[in-house]
Write a protein that binds this DNA or RNA. Structure first.
Lengths: 349, 349
DNA sequence: CTGAAAGCGCTAACAC
DNA sequence: GTGTTAGCGCTTTCAG
């Protein structure tokens, strides 16, 4: 049997479609008697509004898109986990897409998706697209960008202060007495802005401490994953003058680096200390556990959704703003060692 | 400026909406001349079909829902990663939802979502819902269930042979000479069918080897995550007669157990060997790496999507079938030790 | 407070 | 081949 439509309900209740609609959506005041009649009919026919029709009539899709480069990157998975319930609270469904960092795909989504009424707005974590590409987006598309870009005034941007966080991470290593500190994850090309901010913080920490930067210790990697960290670490440890500490641009990189360091017989942190970035759960269970920069993901998710819905709600395009979420440094075993184990102190001068 | 509609294009091209629709959708044959005219108009107006309107007219939503308990569980993330491109190939968008294992939420999705035209079909990995709950679903909802349930004939089911995989995992440990083998992850209640299948395989391996099962070594856990594995391992190692091997019902459980074993000063695999389940990437980078049961996720994803689309396409409800995906056991360091390290052999009698 | 009716933009009989 | 047109099911303006 076909599902009941609004009209069926109206017929049964002996009222017009308009009134049923009012009841269903809680719009205008409906008299007590009418409401009861309608509600009985609603129940009897087990009515469910057809979302498609509703949205067509309303001129919106009721969905927001969340676009990330990779779904199986724990950081994004954890972020999504926080975004979905927030969106749902506000009656929005979440359409997820992964771009694999493909610039064409990212551009396509930005230019077509919203216009096709696939979604009303988008939370976007760009990878393939450089800052300059983002200026060409449709200013009518409600957009919130996550991560390390800076708003250009047309979309909102939410992220942490990457330069400062990276500076703090590097300073933490310096404070522990490390002097040859490598950095894994630089991306010295236009789409690598995220990485470059971290490199900047790394340099700044060195400058603050009056330490020179050995450029050969800054290792570029195509992505921020385990394999990248592993490969870079292997190269670093193969040198005659290996580093005594490494600032990794993601926890995944740190985990890959850790794996390889141990495999090659190095002790962590005694021989080489490691700090990551993102604070994914995995880093709390590795052996040793990974020190990290912890961005406030819940706040990022909540802010992103809140800003996006506000943009969707406003007809006038509103100027893009910049939101800084909190972050903190969490020292764990990969820099400060096991809590109760007796081991030589490496810190101090 | 408002976006161009089909009608605008028709007007400009001097044809009817019908013809434009034909061109856009590649339906009936259109004469070369007309097609050209239309395509020029299409381009000139930069036309994009309104998906909402199209779907309303077609009576479908063009979306499939993928419902998993937790998005930040690597196994699900990896599965989703494989599902999304498959669905997209066929022109479907993927709506993702996480239920947190909440039975009410799961039931709600099953009963309402499709009827509201939110999605045309659903790939579902149930957690809160017991097998018996699934029989009550709308037989008209195209549904593919993932994981450890068995099809009841109304929906399709795709998964691996859990009993056999679990038997093999346990037999692997027995073959290495282990005799006191614990199992972490049992769930002796109606919604724990997944876990129970694994326990069954565990028992079977013991029976095959003529070994008794120490019931106190079967540790139930509420979920399959790191914290569960860690807690269970702590309890096991606190006993006077600790196990010399553990079969963990997920890699996450194994990773948590590993963390705690090392923390308590045990050597893995010398003192206690560990095997997991799922083959998530994390297990290939842990120290030591985790032996595991590897389900063919790509095949599972492809099969699930393919079956679902077939069900969506068929008007007649088709009988649910059972699809078994491949799996294999991957021995890694957590059972067989480091490849080149000199260490005492524990195998043999 | 409620009814009638005009769309939302597209698809797909049904004609010609 | 192509045009006409009646919906898809809901929202919402305009009357009353």
């Amino acid at each position: 049997m076909r599902d009941a439509t609004l009209r069926d309900v109206a017929l049964l209740a002996g009222v017009s479609a308009r009134t049923v609609s009012n009841v269903v959506n809680g719009y205008a005041r409906v008299s007590e008697r009418t409401r009861e009649k309608v509600e009985r009919a609603l129940l009897e026919l087990n009515y469910r509004p057809n979302v498609l029709a509703r949205n067509l009539a309303r001129g919106r899709s009721g969905q927001i898109a969340v676009v990330v480069p990779y779904l199986d990157t724990p950081y994004f998975a954890e972020l999504l986990q926080a975004i979905i319930p927030r969106a749902r609270e506000h009656g929005y469904n979440v359409l997820i897409d992964q771009t694999d960092g493909d610039a064409a795909h990212e551009r396509e989504l930005i230019s077509r998706g919203a216009r096709a009424f696939l979604f009303d707005g988008m939370i976007f974590s760009p990878l393939g697209l450089a800052q300059e590409d983002l200026v060409e987006i449709d200013p009518d598309l409600p957009l919130v960008v996550l991560g390390e870009r800076v708003s250009n005034g047309v979309f909102d941007h939410v992220g942490i202060d990457d330069v400062e966080a990276s500076r703090a991470a590097t300073a933490h290593l310096i404070g522990l007495g490390r002097r040859r500190i490598a950095a894994i994850g630089d991306q010295p090309y236009p789409t690598g802005e995220a990485a470059q901010l971290r490199t900047r913080g790394y340099r700044q920490a060195h400058a603050d401490a009056g330490l020179p930067v050995d450029e050969s210790l800054i290792i570029p990697t195509p992505r921020f994953n385990r394999a990248d960290g592993s490969g870079a670490m292997r190269a670093l440890l193969g040198r005659e003058d290996p580093p005594d500490a490494v600032f990794c641009y993601s926890d995944l990189v740190a985990l890959g680096a850790l794996h390889t360091a141990l495999e090659l017989g190095r002790r962590v942190p005694e021989d080489v200390a490691l700090i990551g970035y993102d604070d994914i759960e995995e880093g709390r269970y590795s052996n040793p556990t990974i020190s990290t920069i912890s961005p406030d993901k819940v706040a990022i998710a909540a802010t992103a959704v809140e800003r996006l819905l506000r943009r969707i709600g406003d007809d006038e395009p509103m100027p893009g703003i910049e939101v800084r979420a909190e972050h903190r440094l969490i020292p764990r075993e990969s820099t400060v060692g096991k809590p109760f184990a007796a081991r030589p102190h490496l810190g101090g001068t």
